[in-house]
Amino acid sequence: MHIHGHTFALAGSGLRKDTVPLRPMESMPLELEADNRGDWMVHCHNVYHAEAGMMIPLKYT
């Protein structure tokens, strides 16, 4: 999973990232500070997956 325009911390570790590998149906708690207003994308870095719908907008003002 990759988030454009932001970094996030892996919950409890403090490690800052903008991409984290996840297996199918896996989840991971993240700490994201929404401090960069605008229209961004969250998507899988596997192009086939992104084209198949594993891409969502992240929008806030």
Results as ranks from 00 to 15, higher is better:
K59S: 11
V20P: 03
V42P: 03
R16S: 13
P57C: 01
H6M: 00
G12A: 01
E26N: 09
T61F: 14
M54Q: 11
G38S: 01
I3F: 04
K17Q: 13
L22R: 09
G5N: 01
H45T: 13
P57F: 05
R23W: 13
M1V: 07
G38V: 02
A34I: 12
R23M: 15
A11N: 05
F8D: 00
W40L: 01
K59N: 08
G5D: 03
D18T: 08
P29K: 10
A34M: 14
R37F: 13
H2M: 10
T19P: 00
K17R: 15
K59T: 13
S13M: 05
G5M: 00
H45P: 01
N46L: 04
M1R: 02
M1L: 07
L32Q: 13
L30H: 05
M1N: 02
P21K: 08
P21A: 09
M54Y: 10
T7I: 07
P29H: 10
V42L: 12
G53F: 04
R23P: 04
Y48C: 03
M1E: 06
L58N: 00
I3H: 04
P29M: 07
N46Y: 05
L15K: 13
K17C: 14
G38H: 05
T61K: 14
P21V: 08
R16I: 11
C44V: 00
C44K: 02
H43D: 09
G38W: 00
K17V: 14
H6Q: 04
R37M: 11
V47C: 06
H2R: 15
G5R: 00
L22H: 10
N36D: 03
P21I: 06
F8V: 01
A52R: 11
P57S: 12
Y48A: 08
L10N: 09
M41Q: 05
N46Q: 03
E31G: 01
H4A: 11
G38F: 02
A9S: 15
L32H: 07
D35K: 10
L32I: 15
A9V: 11
S13H: 09
N46P: 01
E33G: 03
E26W: 06
L22M: 12
I3P: 02
A9Y: 10
L10G: 10
W40M: 01
S27E: 11
A11H: 06
E31P: 05
V42K: 05
M54W: 11
M28P: 03
Y60A: 08
G14Y: 06
N46T: 08
T19V: 13
D39K: 15
H45G: 04
M25H: 15
R23G: 13
I56T: 14
V20H: 14
V20W: 09
Y48G: 03
E33R: 12
A50S: 07
I56S: 15
T19C: 11
L22E: 08
